[in-house]
Amino acid sequence: MWELGDTVNDEDRTNHVRNEMAHGHFGNVVQAGIVRDGLHIHQGFRDAPSDLENPVIVSVRRMMAPSGTLYIVTLQARTTRAVILHAARPVVLSRRPRFYKAITPRHFRTELDSEPPRLYTEGPDFPFTISATDVEQFRFKVVGNADEVYWQLELDWSCAEYEGTVVIDDNGKPFEA
């Protein structure tokens, strides 16, 4: 046996200990010649299958602003893996004419009043990435003047071999505009 600090030539080493792996696929592999005080192998945290099937945690906060309602959506991953956020889109669930309409100058912005409703960004665009420690916060300014609109957001995501869509609403109810 060799001790720490011993001088050993390659010929002695190859004749005494031989480690080899060939063919096939292997998980975690540890090769050790001599272990004196024990060997501890820790596997990293593994995600539960349900965490990968629905990896996005959503919280919504509503604020009133002079220009209308502002929704602050905070997104976090339920999994230890990165979740890629591909796109978000508003979805109108129903609309009805308002019984009272104020006369205002005509300004044109396409968002909830368009078919299909459109989402425009004021800066970087999708895709974004979230993880358990890297959180994104989206602020949605709602524009829709023609009708009373009940709507929600749908957010497409993928994580590992899974993909899906998470519905973002006002705690189980549609948003109102």
Rank of each mutant, 00 (worst) to 15 (best):
P49N: 12
R18H: 09
D12Y: 01
Q137E: 10
G164S: 08
V92K: 10
N54A: 11
L85I: 02
A22M: 08
G44T: 00
V8H: 05
I168T: 03
R96I: 11
T133L: 15
R96M: 12
Y120H: 15
T79V: 00
T69E: 15
V142T: 14
R139Y: 04
N54L: 04
P116A: 07
E122T: 13
G123I: 03
I84L: 07
C159Y: 02
I72A: 14
A88P: 04
P97K: 12
N9G: 06
E154C: 06
Y162G: 08
R139L: 07
V60I: 01
T14S: 15
A177F: 05
H42F: 06
V143Y: 08
Q43T: 15
V83H: 00
K173W: 00
I103G: 13
T165I: 13
Y71K: 09
G27V: 03
V58T: 01
D47Y: 10
I130N: 00
V56T: 00
E176L: 08
D156Q: 07
V30M: 02
M64N: 14
L93W: 01
L75V: 01
S114Q: 06
I168V: 07
H16I: 11
T80K: 13
S59Q: 12
N28D: 09
A146L: 06
G144R: 02
D47Q: 11
F108D: 12
L155R: 01
A32V: 07
Y120A: 13
D169S: 06
W157Y: 04
V149H: 05
V92L: 04
I34K: 14
N15L: 13
V83E: 02
A102P: 04
F126G: 02
G27T: 03
L93I: 05
E161K: 13
G24C: 08
D134Y: 04
T14Q: 15
P127M: 03
H86L: 00
A65T: 14
H23D: 11
V92Q: 10
P117I: 03
D113R: 06
A32W: 00
D147V: 10
K141H: 14
A77K: 06
V8S: 11
E161G: 12
T104D: 06
G123Q: 02
D125Q: 10
P49Y: 05
F175E: 03
P49D: 11
D51G: 09
A77Y: 01
C159N: 05
Q152Y: 02
